[in-house]
Design a binder for these strands. Sequence first.
DNA 1: CTTCACATGTGAATCTTTTAACAATTTAAT
DNA 2: ATTAAATTGTTAAAAGATTCACATGTGAAG
Lengths: 212, 212
Amino acid sequence: MNGYVSDAVVRRLPGYYRHLRELEENGVVQISSQELGERMSLTPSQIRQDINCFGGFGRQGYGYPVHELKEHIGEILGLNRKHRMAIIGAGRIGNAVSRYPSFRREGFETVAMFDSDPALMTEEDDGIGIYDISRLEELLPEMDISIAVLAVPATAAQKTADRLYACGVRAIWNFAPVDLQHPADMEVVNVHMSDTLHILSYRMAHPDADRK
Amino acid sequence: MNGYVSDAVVRRLPGYYRHLRELEENGVVQISSQELGERMSLTPSQIRQDINCFGGFGRQGYGYPVHELKEHIGEILGLNRKHRMAIIGAGRIGNAVSRYPSFRREGFETVAMFDSDPALMTEEDDGIGIYDISRLEELLPEMDISIAVLAVPATAAQKTADRLYACGVRAIWNFAPVDLQHPADMEVVNVHMSDTLHILSYRMAHPDADRK
DNA sequence: CTTCACATGTGAATCTTTTAACAATTTAAT
DNA sequence: ATTAAATTGTTAAAAGATTCACATGTGAAG
């Protein structure tokens, strides 16, 4: 139990959470680093090392208790908290995210959308209002938003991020294919879907390259 | 110029490509590792090290030629090739991907969609046919698909991936929140959007943690 | 033509991450 | 009650990635 969670471990945490939840749903109550490693394509050694840094869950000769470990990782990830999200850009991606049911189940609730296309300005069937983006400064600060989902075109992304910061937003989940410049007190995580497609393209072009 | 491209470098390649294209669009013809590093939040040293592994582009006292470097990275990524994609699962995510215009521009063309919901079985306005997923084995092998976009619910993902493999598909761009088991001769890259949201949640819960 | 500032390529040093190894503990079986 | 098999926590070693430092080459200015 060493306490410090390195960035390499943080990147794997959502994967642990996902697999443990799935195991729990299937009624599995206990799992060894060996077995979990096979599922996740990690070495048992790495799994023990990872879990050990927030320590004390395993029992020798037995393994790890699935439910308890999942809950603990969920807490480390902050999944016990609730988040109110605003979606900026009500195009296909923005809508896909706002309707994706598992986010809401995990405490990420979409409470409003903003777009520049007036055709979309309407109360949606699910009760999420869509507002003109020109009203961002007027409406957003009242909404108690903790996460903004940025799903605008690349060309508008930086300017919009700046406006969001000015409205008090301190966390952006960015779907625009752009690396945003941002103050240190605003967190930004990028989805950058096309990057993953490019990596697939790379692997197809170099089937020989050993992945390490 | 050492030739071997490590996985850490491959993961950064799409970012280089993105930034270089943007620079090129803005008419920038030359850039130093210093300046590029500021844009990308990488050290100049790392950039020189990265670019050096497929070598020989920079000129001392001058920097790197933007167009030439971009083109070369594009080739390494395999972006000179064309790909025909089939989208499996015509829900919001599947549709968002198939309509996203920049993929087509980069040579990734959606040629068909499959879904289990008969309400969707129709020729779309953009000419992309939507077929019942039960006809996968009948239709897909004829279509000369090189990439399948998997956008079905988590519960169906593994079974569907197995069927795709049986149909001859050897590359999957996976949007289902699942780590697929797959033969070594099939490439899979995951988007796992919710993982990035979980990482955002982690960072919000631990604003102190140094990101390294 | 000389000089100066700039910026790369590269080898070595440092830091991080992963893997290996094993003593210690638990479970289950006989 | 003993023993055998399983499996962790942890330390140490190995591998990998990043940063540093500097010699070397380039371009521009005087």
